[in-house]
Simulated scan of single mutants.
Amino acid sequence: MESKCKLTYFDAMGTAEPIRYLLYHGKIKFEDNRVDFQTWQSMKTSTPFGQMPVLEIDGKKMHQSIAICRYLGKKLALAGENDWESAQIDMAVDTVLDLRIKLSEFYWESDETVKQRKKATVLNETLPFVLERLNGLVKENGGYLALGKLTWGDFFFAGISEYMNCVTQFDITKDYPNLAALKKKICELPDVKDWISRRPVSQL
């Protein structure tokens, strides 16, 4: 019997897009449950820790986007084969996550003066520092983030880069050919490409 799967998130890409990429790539049928802010306020207490995304499989709820991606990666044979290999993926993914958090901090800052200061630091210092090293990491791994092969970490980077592009208002991979090639590789996988061609238009 096929599992019943539902992904709940805002009507946006955000931290749910890597999960969608993995679900579509793995041909896992799921309900893409998108909620608006008002609906979210009324259902927030019903989620494990008052956060989204939430992936529900046969009534069991999972939260935290990276934990969900890691779980799907194991199911789809896109994870490490031992603890050391798993750590290679985790290190790369956590680095990407740190960058996303830094970008989010300036984007959602309400004090305009503080926001501009944070933005300048992130765009002029943090972003190039991290992307240059990630670009080198992909080169070392033959076109992938880790292990010299396709892993769930590559899907995480490709999906979350969509959010980061929206925040920065430019393609973060434009000066980093190895990262650009990796993202293109993921986005041109047949089921991911099909999803991208028909997904709802979103600002984030």
Rank of each mutant, 00 (worst) to 15 (best):
F129C: 03
L134V: 09
D191G: 00
L179T: 13
R199I: 02
R20Y: 03
N124D: 15
K118M: 08
T126Q: 14
Q41L: 15
G80N: 07
K139V: 08
E81R: 14
A158C: 12
K149D: 00
V201P: 01
K118G: 00
K139Q: 09
A77G: 09
T45K: 13
Y24N: 14
I19K: 03
K44C: 06
I68V: 14
L204M: 15
K115L: 08
L23I: 05
N141F: 03
L103W: 05
F129A: 03
R70D: 10
S46P: 03
E81I: 05
D83M: 05
Q88R: 14
I19E: 04
Q64H: 15
N124R: 11
D171I: 05
C187Y: 06
K119W: 07
L97K: 15
R34M: 13
G14V: 08
E17I: 12
A87V: 11
I196A: 01
K193M: 02
V114D: 04
C5N: 15
P53V: 12
E125M: 07
F129M: 05
K75Q: 13
P200I: 00
F10M: 02
V167K: 11
P53L: 11
G136W: 04
A92C: 12
V138I: 14
W40S: 10
T45A: 15
P18V: 06
D171K: 13
T168E: 09
E112C: 00
A92L: 10
L147M: 11
V167G: 07
E85D: 12
